[in-house]
């Protein structure tokens, strides 16, 4: 009798494990149809109406980027994640300003810069900056000096309005090492604002000099959106006062 019981328990636990695995960990075999994506965005987000899905780009087996065009001719971004055997829309921005998608927020090498710049904005490249303000602290005789971080990386725009870029390898290392030495205990003792010492990513458009800046319509940078879960940072325009001499 007990052998039979053991056998049943064995079968049951195998089924449960397999079921849990299938439900939570299995990978998608197909991408949703564009028509379906369009309908689903329009169902969950009423501020805009998607008229066309431009593309579906898999970042890895579970993360999907879907750029779209809406009724009032805005170029937007939507972010999809495979969860519990379904493609869920995790975040959306109704204009295509650059967004930092932290796919695994503990691992900066998984971070992606994603944008969908409106074709009216005809600048030739987007320049991204990694920066941190210089700072110093003296607490109970313990001195700290934080060097200024200021790096830039230019990505030329292609004929497609949307693009996905990895962070440069050294940026990912710098972010990782900053996270490693971050000590919330020590920071809380100080009255200084610890955001001051944190790294920031910002960007600015790069124009062909002869045409001036009249082609920056800015329609790519002010929009609405939502996110439920995930880790997304909107990458804002760089403020010139944050930049130092670069020779």
């Amino acid at each position: 009798m007990s052998k039979k019981l053991l056998f049943i328990i064995g079968i049951l636990s195998f089924c449960i494990t397999a079921g849990v695995y299938w439900y939570y960990l299995s990978e998608p075999s197909t991408l949703p149809k564009k028509e379906e994506l369009k309908n689903r965005i329009n169902r969950v987000y009423s501020d805009t109406e998607v008229v066309s899905i431009q593309d579906t780009i898999l970042l890895d087996s579970r993360h999907l980027y879907v750029p779209f065009i809406s009724k009032n001719n805005d170029y937007g971004s939507s972010f999809w994640v495979w969860k519990k055997r379904k493609w869920e829309i995790e975040a959306l921005n109704d204009v295509g300003q650059p967004i930092l998608w932290k796919i695994d927020n503990k691992d900066p090498s998984s971070y992606r810069i994603v944008w969908n710049i409106h074709p009216e904005d005809q600048f030739k490249a987007a320049e991204f900056y990694l920066s941190r303000d210089r700072g110093y602290e003296i607490t109970n005789g313990i001195e700290f000096y934080y060097p200024k971080v200021q790096l830039n990386k230019e990505f030329t725009l292609s004929e497609k309005s949307y693009r996905i870029k990895k962070l440069p390898r050294n940026w990912a290392s710098i972010i990782q090492s900053t996270n490693n030495i971050h000590n919330p205990d020590r920071m809380s003792i100080l009255d200084g604002d610890n955001a001051e010492h944190s790294l920031l990513i910002a960007w600015k458009p790069v124009f062909d000099k002869k045409n001036g800046d009249d082609i920056f319509s800015k329609r790519s940078i002010s929009g609405g959106g939502f996110s439920n879960g995930g880790d997304y940072d909107i990458i804002s325009l760089v403020e010139e006062h944050q930049l130092e001499n670069q020779q």
């Binding site: 210089r134 700072g135 110093y136 602290e137 003296i138 001195e143 700290f144 000096y145 060097p147 200024k148 200021q150 290392s173 710098i174 090492s177 130092e244 001499n245 020779q247």
Partner: peptide, 29 residues
């Protein structure tokens, strides 16, 4: 470590800008 002086030497606007450069511009990983 003389953090305050290091900081002030770089942000001091009385010094010409090309002499005010980040003191620690590299990192070893």
């Amino acid at each position: 470590i003389d953090s305050q002086r290091w900081y002030n030497d770089i942000v001091n606007i009385d010094v010409p800008q090309e002499e005010r450069k980040e003191k620690f511009p590299f990192q070893i990983m």
